[in-house]
Nucleic acid binder design. Structure first.
Lengths: 121, 121, 121, 121
DNA sequence: GTGGTCTAGACCACA
DNA sequence: GTGGTCTAGACCACA
């Protein structure tokens, strides 16, 4: 289901944000689906409820999910959740590219890197 | 010489790190050149000396400059400074691209973004 | 220094965010000033360090302060901190005005209120 | 009649308070009209009677309705109900404006915003 | 020393 | 039951 790496330098709550984002992108979690409750997921993953809470609150801040006290947490409606995930990645990539340009990277460097990651076609 | 944007949300010391990096890449600052002293640069830019200090420390951490107690701060030798700047940007760009791929961005998205930033040739 | 209301329904960390924002607007905290450390402020206010941490992280998310692990937390440079506070207030005012319109308040009501608060000129 | 958004982060009872307030402002509910009984409205809206009860209690606290044991709940007499609704919005707007003033917003900012929302006349 | 993360609890309002 | 806040600790990397 969700595999956490407790040895990683990446915080557990960040791993959770990414894992849940991936499940949404893969279609395993759909719009309006209810997420496991904070306590239930904490128990299943062997993690403290506060850590799950932190992940859920970050996802809510990014408008990928929404939480209703007393009811539960839910995937944002329509294409909203997926859109928020992609727009975030896109924004981060743009910033990295702009920084790179300022730092002296040229278009060829970007293309080479893209080739490495996506494979040359 | 160095233009800071005091309105920007980007911390001044970060702007300084970038500006000084650019001056190195442009060749305005060369290997073994001495940087202005913390207090002199602070006075010239109308900024707190602590802010300059912070920028210099970050540049030193990245091995772009080195400091000698009692003498001053100097650009790292040879192509070293430029290499450190570019390799750092390149690594950040690679990570952003890998994240983007996981988030569902395709090669065409990367190319479009690169076109925007570098201009289509 | 900072007065908290432990009886209030408003969470302590939110009260802290507001109090610190006010100190910045009043000029008591200036650009690049270092804030008290998480632990020091927790001790002074008789509050758990996690609660201070939560307030500081929210202020950092709003780009009003920036934190550097191992060094401390600092007011954002230049006019940045004040700008971020004002833009947020502006957003809240817009929402209150939209709610008021839905509740039947007319333009004249808004003008009367503005007159009361800013003084008729 | 009344549409609730069960997905919203806004508590159901708050939505009810607002919806009923709107019906009063629109004239759909007039002074001395009897409101549906707690159980009847709960059944119609598919909501727990406690939730309706809570909304009615809040409206009574705000003097928008009044309840008579054994008889039911009624809209407050004369212009009273509408006044209470508007005065509440007005109070919220006043607070947002005072916060805005403390944050450095000037009268011109308020006027510009009012122009946006009400349209310049 | 600093901020950042995390555990293991508690209590609250709300449904 | 649910999410939200908070306490009272712990340990980590970094400077």
């Amino acid at each position: 289901m969700i595999q956490l790496d407790f040895q990683s330098r990446q915080p557990i709550y960040e791993q959770l944000v990414l894992k849940l984002s991936e499940l949404i992108l893969l279609g395993a979690l759909k719009a309006e689906d209810q997420l496991p409750s904070v306590r239930a997921l904490a128990r299943d993953l062997g993690v403290n409820p506060n850590t799950i809470q932190k992940a859920y609150q970050e996802l809510e801040r990014r408008k990928i999910i929404y939480s209703v006290a007393g009811k539960g947490s839910f995937i944002s409606p329509g294409e909203c959740a997926g859109e928020m995930i992609r727009s975030r990645s896109c924004q981060a990539l743009r910033e990295a590219m702009e920084d790179g340009k300022r730092a002296g990277l040229v278009r060829a460097d970007v293309d080479r890197l893209a080739g490495e990651i996506y494979g040359e076609e």
